[in-house]
Design a protein around this nucleic acid. Structure first.
Length: 212
DNA sequence: ATTTAGATCCTCT
DNA sequence: GAGGATCTAAATG
C-alpha cells in the first residue's frame, strides 16, 4: 500500500510541530528505474534557525551550503559531514525562515534486500542514525535542495499511521557541542521504545517517583 | 557496558 | 587551518 504525499501545508508551520508529526511518516527515494527505497521515520530533531546556536543557519548565516534552508518549506537539505556521511533534513516554517528538521532514524520498509547487500545485519540497525539512513536510502548531494512537494524521486508519505502524543519520547539533541543552554533544549523526538532509535538512548520521562 | 580514537573532506574563517 | 547535526572498531573497566 502506497501512502499520500505530504503537501506544502504540512511543512509550512511551526518546526517543532513538524518534527513531532513526521514520526510515523514514510520517507521515500524512488531510484531511476522505479525501485522504491523507503523507511518509516522514528526519530527527528528540530533546528530553530536564527535563534538556535546548534543550527547551521544560526544568526541567519546564509552560505552556499545553508541556502536550501532559506527556501520553501518542503525542500530537502542534505549536507556532508565528518568526511564520511550525509544527513537528511526537511525545511520547515515560512520561506525565508531558515528552520529544518533532521531525520535521525528510520525503520526500513521497502528495498530491504538492497540495503542488506551493502550493510548486512539486523533490519533495525540499517538506518538507526542520520548517516546510516542516508546510506540505506542512497541519499546524497544529488538529492539536496529537492522540493519534496513536487519532486519525482524524493518525498515523504502519510501511510495512515497515527502516533499518539503519549508514544513520543523527547530529549536533548545529539552531537551539538557542550557549553551553552541550548544543549538542554528538548528538541529531539522519537517513537517511544522503537527498536530502530539511534544512540544515545532517550532519557526516562520525569515523574514524581523518579530519582535522578 | 562505556570510552576513545581514527577515518575523511567539505565548509567557512 | 579548524572543526563538524557521525560511525565503527578497538581498548578499557
Amino acid at each position: 500500500m502506497i501512502g499520500k504525499r505530504l503537501l506544502r501545508e504540512f511543512y509550512q508551520r511551526d518546526t517543532i510541530e513538524v518534527a513531532r508529526h513526521l514520526l510515523g511518516k514514510v520517507l521515500v527515494h524512488r531510484l531511476p528505474g522505479g525501485m522504491r527505497l523507503s523507511g518509516k521515520i522514528v526519530e527527528t530533531e528540530a533546528y530553530l534557525g536564527a535563534v538556535d546556536p546548534a543550527a547551521h543557519s544560526y544568526n541567519n548565516r546564509r552560505t552556499p551550503r545553508t541556502e536550501p534552508m532559506f527556501g520553501r518549506p518542503g525542500l530537502s537539505y542534505i549536507y556532508f559531514i565528518y568526511g564520511n556521511h550525509f544527513c537528511f533534513n526537511v525545511v520547515t516554517a515560512e520561506e525565508g525562515i531558515p528552520e529544518a528538521v533532521l531525520v535521525r532514524a528510520l525503520e526500513p520498509l521497502e528495498g530491504l534486500p538492497l540495503m542488506l547487500r551493502q550493510r548486512p545485519g539486523n533490519t533495525h540497525e540499517l538506518a538507526n542514525g542520520p548517516g546510516k539512513l542516508c546510506a540505506a536510502l542512497a541519499l546524497g548531494r544529488e538529492q539536496n535542495a529537492r522540493d519534496m512537494v513536487t519532486d519525482t524521486e524524493v518525498w515523504i508519505e502519510d501511510n495512515g499511521e497515527i502516533i499518539d502524543e503519549s508514544q513520543i519520547s523527547e530529549g536533548p539533541r545529539v552531537g551539538i557541542g557542550r557549553e551553552l543552554d541550548h544543549i538542554h533544549w528538548p528538541l529531539r523526538f522519537g517513537i517511544q521504545n522503537h527498536p530502530a532509535l539511534s544512540r544515545p538512548k532517550f532519557p526516562l520521562p520525569l515523574g514524581d517517583d523518579q530519582i535522578i
